[in-house]
């Protein structure tokens, strides 16, 4: 399994995302923002950080990077794509996922270990979890407040496309406690918390995040 991990100028978490892919026995393939070539990868991770300095809006400029044009096309054909934190913001700006991420409601940058509930375990990235399982992974973001209009929210709820919800106090003002969502097909998932930082108890709060990368492996192996 070859999994591409994109690096934009200002990306921070590409190395941890690559490590998570290797922990799941996948081959991590670095993808550069200026390249149009996806190098025959089976899936793509858009990692966290501050792509292009978050200038204009988080993800607004990264969306137009040459590599993203290829990712959008591949995602529409069904390739699994995961956006983590800034990657989620990029996927929203690229219209692969609905809604937008805005400043946290209390304006604080939130950095803590966060409990999430897995609400949909049928996406490309969540089959290793039990439904309603609670997982603990780091959350570190200043613009993680998920916003969408009422019709979009209803559609997400009705179609079971809310993949993760925050457990306990809402950390950032996200509507409906949304931490992560998927597209209609379930191949594209975005979330604000960081599963790639929670793959080994030695270096993270838990190994709860590894399931996302193992889910992908299952999908590709069984295909």
């Amino acid at each position: 399994m070859r999994v591409g991990v994109i690096t934009f100028p200002g990306t921070l978490d590409d190395v941890d995302a690559q490590r998570a892919v290797r922990y799941a026995d996948g081959e991590a393939v670095p993808l550069w923002h200026a390249d149009r070539d996806l190098q025959n990868v089976d899936a793509v991770i858009v990692p966290g950080g501050f792509s292009y300095g978050d200038y204009l809006r988080a993800g607004a400029i990264a969306r137009f990077a040459p590599v993203m044009q290829e990712v959008v096309e591949a995602a529409h054909k069904g390739m699994p794509v995961l956006g983590i934190c800034n990657g989620f913001q990029v996927l929203a700006e690229a219209h692969l996922l609905p809604g937008a991420l805005t400043r946290n409601h209390e304006l604080h940058f939130v950095c803590r270990d966060q409990w999430l509930r897995v609400e949909n375990n049928t996406t490309a990235w969540t089959t290793r979890y039990d439904r309603d399982a609670e997982i603990l992974v780091p959350l570190k973001s200043g613009e993680g407040s998920y916003q969408a209009d009422a019709d979009t929210l209803k559609q997400l709820e009705d179609e079971n496309r809310i993949v993760f919800r925050y457990v306990g106090e809402n950390p950032n003002g996200s509507l409906n406690d949304i931490a992560g969502i998927s597209n209609a097909r379930g191949n594209v998932v975005g979330l604000m918390p960081h599963p790639e930082h929670a793959i080994d108890a030695l270096t993270g709060p838990t190994d709860d995040g590894l399931g996302m990368f193992l889910s992908l492996l299952d999908l590709v192996v069984n295909a």
């Binding site: 805005t102 400043r103 409601h105 209390e106 304006l107 407040s145 916003q147 209009d149 003002g173």
Partner: peptide, 10 residues
Amino acid sequence: MPKPEILDPQ
């Protein structure tokens, strides 16, 4: 401008 219905914490 942020839409009227969108929370504007700033």
